[in-house]
Design a protein around this nucleic acid. Structure first.
Lengths: 232, 232
DNA sequence: CGCGCCCTTGACCAGACTCAATATTAGTGG
DNA sequence: CCACTAATATTGAGTCTGGTCAAGGGCGCG
């Protein structure tokens, strides 16, 4: 499987073969699959944006920093997601792995050559934009508890919340692997580490979650959790 | 000029003629230019996404609502910007004019036909995504004053902040037309109307701004204002 | 088993929110 | 042109959520 997809882009069901494009593009480097340890920086904000990447396995986060060190995690990426796209010459945020991950990098110029790739990009960009808008609501209008509940629900249900066939079984338990430190969760939710910790404790006190490990949350009442998100 | 561009898409410098695509597409409705009064709803979140729009003149905002009425304005659009794009069947947010505006709507299916249009869309999506990430930092990590200062700076400098040739003259005055109520500004910045008002008053007290009218701000010290944004 | 890192908890503080009263403004019609 | 009105904005007082600072606890890894 690994070798087979080495020169393809993951697309929900279909896979686009990059070989043809690659061969036509003598100057372009071949798509490269890299295995990365947790907390490896893929690129920094401000680096020259020569490569576009796709998550093949594991999780990657994108974040921005303010000069005084405040950090905002702006996106969480899963397998299939593209990152490193930008209109300008430089990356507009930093990219770092959260877990063990495999990432495929390919030459940025490839994007302009293939209309298949272009339409794939368009789709992904639209999805990311939709996710960002949802996140803007969370950051701008939700309380700490609502933010954490929304975060847990998103992890529990997967990111395809729009699919109508996602049926929430009222009393089914879901175990969620966080693979993020409290600090990273805080920086994603626009909170402090202490507030995240307190909110988790509050959820535990109310019997809504329990911890198998610090980074393994058992959600014991999904529909109650859903109530807390503030969303419908 | 109006008639001339009636069937074209504004692209920073170039203009794409939609006529060819339109004619090939007998089922598609012709691009339609509409004149809208301030605070006209173009579409609601949840409406079926049949049309894609482009702002021709004026300003449009995109927002999302929580069931309890909390609102988050997720994007401010200027002439040239596209909106109404979505992967799903339904719009993921509502669109409303802020000022008198002209908007061009065209059939969503056109987007898949033209690779020119596709690459234009890609570019716009990337720009919007970049703007959203910047906004996520504002919402997640900035104080009320920093949010308002960032907002004013963005309006003063225009949205092309990435252009290096934007030189900030230290003591040049900039007059900014808000064309938004305090409530709309608050909903954009993730604050309450009172906090926005207080922050404006604070800026006035410090001599950084004065008001020609409620919605016309004279920024008297751009570099001091820039200091307040929290960004470099 | 022990060390270090991360997480949790507590006490206190501050910035932003809420509620309420007042002041401005822009728009309307006499 | 001015007075009136309704909508919008400002200001104040008090509360509360979440941030800050600081101390302890627990977990995982070597």
């Amino acid at each position: 499987m690994d070798a087979q997809v080495a020169d393809t882009i993951i697309r929900d069901d279909i896979e686009i073969d990059l070989t043809a494009i690659k061969l036509a593009e003598e100057g372009a480097r071949a798509p490269q699959l890299t295995r990365l340890a947790p907390h490896t920086i893929v690129f920094f904000e401000g680096d020259e944006a020569t490569q576009v990447y796709q998550v093949v396995e594991g999780a990657v986060m994108l974040y921005k920093l303010l000069p005084d060190g405040r950090r905002q995690v702006v996106e969480l990426l899963s397998p299939g997601d593209l990152f490193g796209l930008t209109v300008g010459t430089y990356y507009d945020c930093s990219a770092e792995t959260l877990s063990n991950a495999r990432v495929r990098g390919f030459d940025r110029r490839l994007c302009d050559r293939s209309s298949d790739l272009m339409s794939l990009m368009c789709r992904h960009l639209q999805e990311q934009l939709g996710a960002m808008r949802e996140h803007a609501v969370l950051l701008g209008r939700k309380s700490a508890m609502e933010r954490l509940a929304s975060f847990l629900m998103r992890l529990a249900l997967g990111r395809t919340i729009d699919d109508a066939d996602q049926i929430i079984l009222p009393d089914s338990e879901h175990v969620v692997q966080l693979s993020m430190t409290r600090q990273e969760i805080a920086d994603y939710l626009g909170l402090t580490i202490e507030t995240v910790s307190r909110s988790f404790s509050e959820l535990r006190r109310r019997g809504l979650v329990s911890f198998d490990r610090q980074d393994k949350v058992r959600i014991k009442d999904l529909s109650a959790m859903n109530e807390l998100t503030g969303a419908l």
